[in-house]
């Protein structure tokens, strides 16, 4: 991507122009060329939103809850971005993304931007897409970014974990709720919400949550709070928002927020490196005519030496032109630079 194109995209994002903004997110989600550079360029404008993770099992009413939360936040004058993540089919790679149906009347609210996302399922790809999209939405100066995920897979839980405030939604009657509680999903939540509180069994879940928390080993962060809502009837949602806001305020004073943001940044750097190393390794080892395996067999090289060679190529080719923190005046280029693929068999 040329610098001019990128600057235009940054401008579109900063002005929150829906089409440009949406295309930028696609670029990041597809990990297309130029995505890295765009994120680098956006970086100075990020960090301003309160990122709230909402996770829970299918059927727990997360989307309805999100819809209500957004409406109340809008009534308070805040702007909101929503990232709604649903699982990708492992068989076809396609996905059915239906969370918007619950938020249909938010579609035309200019202070709200909703984006659906499939988990797609490449190594850490979801995390990268979500971190990137959070950044894009932050760059539009949204006050809140809500990341809604299905609390079933590890990667979804990981994503929720890096939000500033994590809301875990429980619901009576799904049968698997007690298992989820036992499996430690309570550990990631700052706020544990029993939704559909009007259904029978709600108080049982509430008491199970309480006893689980009482038995849990002490943690550095403040103990999670439990509350009940009925999103459908719009009951308890205002209290939930107050607690979300309160959680951030407290997190700021106690250093918890810094800790969370540090975790998010660390996860983001790890995700970039993991992808780039995996990609470079794949390219290097599957180049046509590569004889590294023969040389390994002959004892002419070792796995460690091969890894070191790949690493050097990564640094030279992948990060060429990317400013590291020591360089001060190099021009801001695409983080991954122009790929100069060597056809020569270096290994």
């Amino acid at each position: 991507m040329r610098t001019a194109e990128r600057d235009k995209m940054v401008e579109d994002i900063r002005a929150a122009r829906p089409a440009g903004l949406a295309r930028a997110i696609s670029l990041i989600e597809d990990e297309a060329e130029g995505a890295g550079g765009l994120l680098e360029a956006l970086h100075p404008h990020t960090g301003g939103a309160h990122v709230v993770g909402i996770t829970g099992p299918p059927g727990s009413g997360k989307s309805t809850l999100t819809d209500r939360i957004v409406k109340h936040l809008r009534a308070r004058g805040s702007t909101v971005g929503v990232i709604a993540v649903d699982p990708t089919s492992p068989f076809s790679g396609g996905a059915l993304l239906g969370d918007r149906t619950r938020m249909a009347d938010l579609a035309t609210d200019k202070g709200v931007f909703i984006r659906s996302m499939g988990t797609r399922g490449s190594l850490g790809g979801l995390s990268r897409a979500v971190y990137g999209t959070i950044k894009v939405l932050e760059a539009t100066e949204k006050d809140y970014v809500i990341v809604e995920t299905v609390g079933v897979g590890q990667s979804e839980v990981d994503i929720a974990r890096v939000a500033d405030t994590v809301v875990v939604v429980f619901v009576p009657g799904l049968g698997d709720d007690v298992q989820a509680i036992k499996a430690g999903i309570t550990e990631i939540g700052d706020l544990l919400v029993v939704n559909k509180a009007d259904l029978p069994g709600a108080s049982r879940i509430e008491s199970t949550l309480e006893s689980t928390l009482n038995l849990a080993p002490p943690r550095v962060e403040p103990a999670p709070k439990i509350l009940t809502t009925s999103a459908e009837r719009d009951e308890g949602v205002v209290d939930l928002i107050d607690m979300i806001v309160e959680h951030l305020a407290l997190a700021k004073t106690t250093g918890l927020l810094a800790c969370r943001r540090r975790m998010r940044a660390k996860a983001e750097i790890t995700a970039i490196l993991t992808r780039d190393i995996a990609k470079r390794t794949e390219i290097s080892l599957s180049e046509p005519g590569a004889d590294w395996y023969e040389r390994l067999q002959d004892g002419r090289t070792t796995p460690g030496a091969l890894a070191a060679t790949i690493w050097r190529k990564l640094v030279i080719e992948e990060y060429e032109g990317v400013e590291d923190e020591n360089s001060r005046e190099a021009s801001p280029g695409d983080r991954r630079g122009e790929h100069r693929r060597s056809h020569e068999d270096l290994l």
Binding site: P18, S89, G94, A95, A107
Partner: peptide, 27 residues
């Protein structure tokens, strides 16, 4: 979905404004 597309379903009773806004946001 089974053909590998990512499909966003709008739900019923959508106005043209809602449809276009969703299409744009979802790129």
């Amino acid at each position: 979905r089974d053909a590998g597309f990512e499909v966003i379903y709008s739900g019923l009773r959508q106005t043209p404004e809602q449809i276009v806004s969703a299409a744009v946001q979802e790129d």
